[in-house]
């Protein structure tokens, strides 16, 4: 059996879910026997070099770059998995969803206590190189079709491990009560 190819990314996330993936400890040696990593912060491959089997998405979509990367993942991966609360419901970044976007920008660059010191001229970021901020933070499944969801903040290492093994081997995923948690 050829190795399954896995890609991972962190959109509007904190890399906590990637850390949780590393929390599978010595089982990572077994994982390397089962899968090969492509585009991922783990091996620092920046662009897709081939079609992947499994795409692991951490974080929701808060700017145009997140949307672009997510759509790339959908194009290049057979199966997409939303990992963590941010990918599933926006998470911590989504706390700004009830606040007007101008108010957010003004607070960050003009009115905030550190903004007045660090940005005395009151310059707002406005460059073609910078991704545009979205009106709110979107869960990944509201942008593209997502196949599976692993909740948690971060998802327990056992949950990520169980899910990866189930996807690679084709067996049914076991969800013991202790591993499915929302925090």
């Amino acid at each position: 059996m050829s190795k399954k190819i896995v890609a991972t990314t962190s959109l509007a996330g904190c890399f906590g879910c990637h850390m949780s993936l590393l929390d599978i400890d010595e089982r990572i040696l077994d994982l390397i026997e089962l899968v090969e990593f492509n585009k991922s912060p783990i091996d620092d491959i920046k662009t897709f070099t081939k079609q992947c089997d499994i795409g692991i998405i951490e974080g929701g979509c808060c700017n145009s770059e997140n949307v672009h990367v997510l759509k790339e993942f959908r194009k290049n991966c057979k199966i997409l998995v939303s990992v963590g609360e941010c990918a599933i419901m926006g998470g911590l970044p989504a706390l700004r969803n009830g606040i007007d976007i101008k108010e957010c920008i003004d607070e960050a660059y003009l009115n905030g206590p550190t903004a007045k010191i660090g940005n005395p001229e009151g310059i707002l970021p406005n460059d073609d190189e910078l991704p545009m901020i979205l009106d709110k933070v979107y869960p990944c499944h509201e942008i593209v079709k997502i196949d599976y969801f692993l909740p948690g903040c971060a998802p327990r290492a056992d949950l990520i491990w169980n899910a990866l093994v189930a996807l690679v081997t084709g067996n049914a995923l076991e969800l013991p009560y202790e591993v499915v948690k929302f925090d």
Binding site: E85, A94, D183
Partner: peptide
Amino acid sequence: GNHFCPSC
């Protein structure tokens, strides 16, 4: 609602 479990 806004049920963000990790901060609750």
